[in-house]
Write a protein that binds this DNA or RNA. Structure first.
Length: 190
DNA sequence: CGGAAGATTTCT
DNA sequence: GAAATCTTCCGA
């Protein structure tokens, strides 16, 4: 069961929490890949110094999709070599999104290994850049509608709040006070 | 038009 | 702990 538009058009922190345990699906030309979302981070526009849409550059070519309504893919290139996949959340004109930081491979594992050029399961999708490479998510996926058939998220197992561990976000030391917000969520089991 | 920086990964 | 590496954004 594919998540619908209403799921995404809510408060970013709620969407971030509820995305845990859901299944990310990419129907690529090479084949289909699926994975359970196990780690996310929330980025809340004007309330969040770490968010790309926070600063002076209110809206730019890169962050434009964050101003859409929820349910779109925000993919950007970082450090010139790695893509990061975000799910745009909340209503239109509210530039917020959820970064998918890690997944647990479900389907198309051989394809992922081939793309990542490794055999180690643990090393396959445990990072934003890694899972994007494993699932072939790149700038071509920028702005895709997650309510479409190419890239989407479906219902997975239900995660109870007790299993969700909030922690500080990673690699945003430049973000001042915002760097201490507990806006990174991981599934505390496995 | 040039320069600087970055929501990372990998190897030493 | 440091390098790799390049698109995007800002200032001039």
């Amino acid at each position: 069961m594919k998540l619908d538009r209403e799921f995404y058009e809510r408060d970013t922190l709620i969407v971030a929490n509820e995305l845990l345990g859901k299944i990310l699906v990419h129907n690529s030309p090479d084949g289909i890949t699926k994975g359970i979302i196990v780690e996310v981070e929330a980025y809340c526009g004007h309330n969040d110094e770490a968010c790309h849409s926070y600063k002076k550059n209110k809206r730019s070519g890169r962050t434009n999709v964050m101003y859409y309504c929820g349910g779109y893919a925000y993919v950007y290139l970082i450090y010139g070599m790695y893509s990061c996949f975000n799910v745009v959340s909340n209503a239109a004109d509210i530039p917020e999104a959820v970064l998918i930081r890690a997944i647990e491979p479900l389907e198309g594992i051989e394809l992922m290994k081939h793309r990542r050029n490794t055999d180690k399961m643990k090393n396959l999708c445990d990072g934003p850049g890694k899972l994007c490479k494993a699932m072939a998510i790149d700038k071509n996926c920028y702005g895709l509608d997650l309510c479409g058939d190419i890239l989407y998220i479906e219902e997975g197992e239900n995660i109870v709040p007790e299993d969700i561990l909030p922690t500080k976000r990673i690699n945003i030391d430049y973000a001042g006070a915002a760097k201490d917000y507990l806006w990174r969520f991981v599934i505390d089991r496995i």
